[in-house]
Each structure stands twice: as structure tokens, then as C-alpha cells.
Amino acid sequence: MSEFLLDARNISIAFGGLKACQNLTLQIPAGGLYGLIGPNGAGKTTAFNLLTGVYTPQSGSIHLDGRPITGLPPHQIAKAGLSRTFQNIRLFGELSVLDNIMLGCHLRGRHALVRTLLRTPAFVAQEAAMRTRAMDLLGMFNLAHLADEQARSLPYGDQRRLEICRALATEPKVLLLDEPAAGMNPSEKKSLAQSIRFIRDCFKLAVLLIEHDMGLVMDICEKITVLDHGCPIAFDVPAKIQCDPRVCEAYLGEPAADQPAPAGGGPAA
């Protein structure tokens, strides 16, 4: 019915008087790699929360692969094929790295109590398969040697990559990344950019990326939506976004200057 894999139209939410997200439309085709930017507090994370069902939109509709997912609880949305990472990392800290990924595989498995207690062949096979799969994924991200470590003991960069890895384990159709490069150094950012492209191609999914590093966003995203005070103010290819006066105004808080915003410098937000 729609040419878009993820099709969110006019979604809005307000917290009391604060309109955190207003009439936001996000449409991502299969295989797309799109960006969502905006100054701090613009409502980007809120948009992710709306898409993934953490908050229920007060108006608007969301479809994933033609299926309506508006108002579904988060676990059903995840099952429908929408997975995400968190701005402030939310790993299962006390559990091992491997367990974190195996939890990502959880929603594609079956977990009836009887087979769990009796250790039926189906159960054993599923556990073994989850383990293989988790190790494969960890191997892809060069985390395999850390499989038995506690997730919280990992260095920050590894934790971010582990979170992406866990999100991929759910076999998503669309992956939402919330500031994956936050706190990384330039070389880490570069390899992150590479791996995001790689993920998109290898897993054949669409990616929506929130990022403050303009260099990264402009580099890898095909199209970018800009949010300000909860309202979408621009949606275009990176080159056009860079010289959009409304975007500069949103970031710099003043009417557009003559020059476009410098591409490489992340805005001081």
C-alpha cells in the first residue's frame, strides 16, 4: 500500500504544555539510510520513543511494512521489525555480553515453560542456535573475545557497538540509532560510519540515525529530517540541508547568515 518501509505520518505528543513532537512525518524506503537531526531538546529521542511504542502518539499514524503499529506496546513493535539503540546506553549490565545478544534473539524464539523444564530437544536446539547466532554477530563486530565479560565492564565504545549488535539480533527491518557516535573519537567515528553502511547492506534493512556529528550525518545519510522544538522544519538531501537558512537559524538561534553552516563542525548544542 505504501512505498515506504517505515511510514510515520503526522505523529505528535505533548508532555503537559510541552509539545515535544508535532506533526512529524518520517518516511523511509527499504534500504534507506536517513538522518534525524536537531538541536538538543528538539524532540529527536521523543520521536524514537513514539516510533518504538515507549510513548503512544496522541495523533498521527505509524505503519511498518504496510502494517499499522500505532499504539502497539513496544515488544510487539519490536517483533514487527523495529529495533533501536538508546542515547544513554541501556545494556543489561549485570549479564554477560553473550546473554545480551541472546536476549536480542529472544523474540524470534519459542519459550514455553514445559520445554524449558524438560529440556526437550527443541529447547536444546534453540539454545544452541541462539548461541551460534549470537557468537556470529559478536564476531562481526569483533566482540567475540568479550562474550563472557559482564556487559557493564566493557569500555564505552564497545558498549555502544554491543547495543547495535543486540538490536540487530532481533532481526529488524528498520534500525533506529540514537546518537551512536556520542563520546567516540574521530577514528572510532569513522569506523562507525563504515559499519553503519555495512549493516544496512549486509542485513538489508533501513536505518534512521540521530546524530550530532554533522560530518558523519552528511557523509552517510541519504536524506535528513531536521527537528526544532518538536516541529519538522526541513527534509532534504544533505547538501540542501547544509544551506537551508531555517536549519542554521534553529542551530545558531539567529537569522541565517550569508555562509551556510560549516559541514564538519558539530553544532555547539
Binding site: 506496546p73 515488544h75 529495533s83 541501556r90 549485570e94 549479564l95 546473554d99 536476549l103 529472544h106
Partner: peptide, 18 residues
């Protein structure tokens, strides 16, 4: 593991489909 994930972080657990 699903139990443990709820204990660790309910929000993350839900978004992992639990």
C-alpha cells in the same frame, strides 16, 4: 534470561521484544 533482563532494565527489555 528474559526475567533477568526485566530486572536489569525494563525499558530495554521491552524494546528487545520481551
Amino acid at each position: 534470561r528474559a526475567f533477568l533482563s526485566i530486572r536489569e532494565d525494563e525499558i530495554a527489555a521491552r524494546s528487545m521484544g520481551i
